[in-house]
Design a protein around this nucleic acid. Structure first.
Lengths: 243, 243
DNA sequence: ACAAAAGTGTTTTTTATACACCCATGC
DNA sequence: GCATGGGTGTATAAAAAACACTTTTGT
């Protein structure tokens, strides 16, 4: 990249501040709700708007480190899945661009993260509002964060179909019923019938039965399973279909 | 994004120059070779190294516009597929970062593009070297461009399986043999048997027979097909499997 | 005639889908 | 006993995979 047409373009390249914004999803297994983490903005622009947790990238810091840093500032987690989502960088996406005389653009590299709801502990610093929002109830967000959330939601739905991200959202031990519920809350409930889903997942061979049972109220107690990452490593190069 | 922890971090955010680098693929249908477009660097750093065509983003210019601009500077094309690939932005990826005293980082937003080889006309400006390189013969590249090419190649292989990108690389009219060849040159030749591939693709319903025949040397003349984008639009929401 | 490439069809195996039904528990 | 959720099996339809065979051209 860079620099090979300085000759022509002289000095009209934009200067950028680069931010990282995280779309952090989780699922409340009890209530079957897909949640996204939002924080309240404490300053202009978009003062008092909800927004995605984000930060400017510091000197010497990689994009991914910045994503981990802001996440660690907002929640304590044991388990975490994180990958880059998309880069939004059109001019005019941040009002501050025009507010100052020197020309500075704001670019956002967004990251997609999944955490376990039960293990995730929100860090309230007494100043910043922070909350899990059910996806359908997300309010008007700051900047273009609405679009970023949409983008993240698409990524989530796609990844559910061919990768084992569900196990980064579920508790370590889960029932097949919970796993199925997770898929239905995210994908809608006409993607597959429970017994077929069950048979397909078990046949993949990386769900190991712990032997433990759990009983939630009425009904037969369910077996608790856990994701066996070693068994998964053996089959992950074959095409996997979870749905 | 941005700005909500200026309080703590004061002024240690990095300043960025943002570049766009294109991984432009094409396929030489005659020789069955997957090609990537490279340009010779004319200045330091990495003087005289081959690199991906790239440019710094200008004031008021979107990332995508920058990607289109640099592409248009290097090749004339009628058809073009382009999408964002990935953003590479670790510190130290560009030697210029340390070369100057003021702290400036170089970040690269990479784009993935497909063009038709026969229609693509390379623009030689008499100064900059420019060439299609067969993927297996790509030399040591400038910056982290090797990695970007790898990333692009993965994207290409994945997209072949579930989206009609092949038709952005093939000529407008093509035989099913050429289509099959394209898949084998990119995916390797054990992905499917020709007659099954053929049956599957025809059943999808968006390849229309032009009625024309073509004969390349010996053997029975083949029918020429074209991609029917209207017919595709009707089925594109269903899961499509090309392989 | 025969090699070469295009194109068709048939058989077998594997998956997907739709259900029907049994099991274990709380109330 | 029966409602509730867990778990198993079976029958049918569809798709994938393997491969045998016919057609049409150039030489």
């Amino acid at each position: 990249m860079a620099g090979r047409d300085d000759r022509k373009s002289l000095n009209n390249q934009a200067d950028f501040k680069v931010g990282v914004d995280n779309v952090i999803f989780s699922v409340d297994t009890q209530q079957n709700r897909l949640l996204v983490l939002l924080v309240m903005r404490q300053k202009e622009p978009y003062l008092d708007y909800w927004s995605l947790p984000g930060t400017l990238v510091r000197q010497g810091e990689s994009l991914e480190s910045a994503a981990y840093r802001i996440l660690a500032e907002k929640i304590r987690v044991k388990n975490l899945y994180l990958e880059q989502l998309y880069t939004f960088g059109g001019p005019g996406r941040d009002p501050r661009e025009s507010a100052y005389s020197y020309n500075c653009r704001y670019l956002s590299v967004s990251y997609f993260a999944l955490v376990r709801f039960e293990e995730a502990e929100l860090i309230a610093d007494g100043v910043t509002g922070i909350a899990w929002y059910p996806l359908e109830q997300v309010p008007k967000l700051a900047f273009d964060h609405q679009q970023i959330v949409e983008y993240g939601y698409n990524r989530l739905r796609n990844k559910l179909e061919y990768s084992p991200v569900a196990f980064d959202v579920l508790p370590e031990e889960f029932t097949l019923g919970e796993l199925y519920q997770l898929y239905t809350t995210i994908l809608g409930d006409n993607f597959s019938d429970y017994s077929n889903f069950r048979a397909r997942l078990l046949k993949l061979g990386f769900l190991s039965d712990t032997g433990l049972k759990t009983s939630r109220g009425a009904g037969r107690p369910a077996s608790l399973y856990r994701f066996d990452s070693e068994a998964f490593a053996l089959v992950k190069d074959k095409p996997l279909i979870f749905i």
